[in-house]
Structures are given as structure tokens and as C-alpha cells.
Design a protein around this nucleic acid. Sequence first.
DNA 1: CATGGGATTGACT
DNA 2: GTCAATCCCATGC
Length: 189
Amino acid sequence: MEPAFYDRPVLEVAHDLIGCVVTHGECSGVIVETEAYHDSEPACHAFVGLTPRTVTLFGPPGLAYVYRSYGVHALLNAVCEHEGVGAAVLIRALEPLTGIDLMASRRGIPVERERLLCSGPGKLTKALGISLADNRCDLLHGPVVISARPVGWVRPAISIGRRIGITKAVDLRWRFCVTGSRFLSRPAR
DNA sequence: CATGGGATTGACT
DNA sequence: GTCAATCCCATGC
């Protein structure tokens, strides 16, 4: 992945991250679901402006923004657009690729339930062992790395719909999914 | 300094 | 379908 990849409109990056690979240690998976967030709309944490929590979102593109959701789950985002703009792509689901046994043990479910290992933003961070300690890590160099689409994922069919689990700006169609994937947090509509 | 609200999940009815 | 868990941090007094 080139550094300039993330220095683009967040909707383009959210679309183009579909099919790319997230790796942490021996575990990896293909991104099958993303959502875009931008400081111009109220569902984005950066909507409130520059605070200790949102400095990462306004920082340089290509860094990870990892935050705790509902006091329980760590959620992984890729910071986008120029420094000074608060925008990021939420990684919402992966199709498991490597380290599946370790993912299953971290998730506490059998490997046979592959479809459920990374089918949600909180599930995938738990499966890959990603935590708040990975906040602000460089996604080009790790520990959390996002790399380009592998063979067979060069032209994924992508469906677009509304974002999930939010109460503001609910009508924006800023969610991107691999059409027909069994690994989504929820089916595309 | 106290309060309240989540970019969720899993257990349960 | 409902609901609690659990913690960071923005906001307001």
C-alpha cells in the first residue's frame, strides 16, 4: 500500500479498502465491510472538533485510530484525508485468511464457525488481538498492517448501503460490503 | 467533579 | 425480540 492511498477522500478509501488485507501477528483477513466517517457529519467522533480523543483522527493519514466502544470493544479505523481533516474508515468485517486457530481461541468459539470469527468490528479486533495499544500505529509498518488486494480480490463486487449502529446521519450511504459475502456483520440490503 | 452516551456483542425471552 | 456489561471522554454545573 502506498502512503498516498489514505490521503484521499474518505469515501474513495472506504471503497478501495474492500478486498485489502489486515494483518496483526500471524492472523490476517480480507476486508469485506467498511464504513466512512468524516468530521462534516455528526456520526463521526471528529464532529466535535479537536479533543484529546480525536487528535488521531485529525492527524496524518495512514495511521490506525483504535478506540473503545460501549466500554467493551476495541474498534479499528484507518485515518484518511489531509492532516487537519478528521476522517477515517471503520473496518467492520473480515474474511479470515491466516491464523484461524488463534482467532478461534481468542474468540472462544470453534474454528468451524469461521463465518463468525470476524463478522463485526469488535469481533475482528478480538480475533486479531488488536487493542487500544495499537492506536496511532502506522498501518504501512505495523504492528497492524493493511496491504493491497491479493490475487482473486482485484475486482471485488461491492454493494453500498447505510451505516450500522449509529443514531445520527443515518441516511448517508457510506457503508461498503463485498456483495454476497458470508462474512459480513449484517447482510447488505 | 458528576453525569450520560455510545461506530457492540452475547446471553436470554 | 430485549438487555446488561463496562469505560473513555465530552459536556455542563
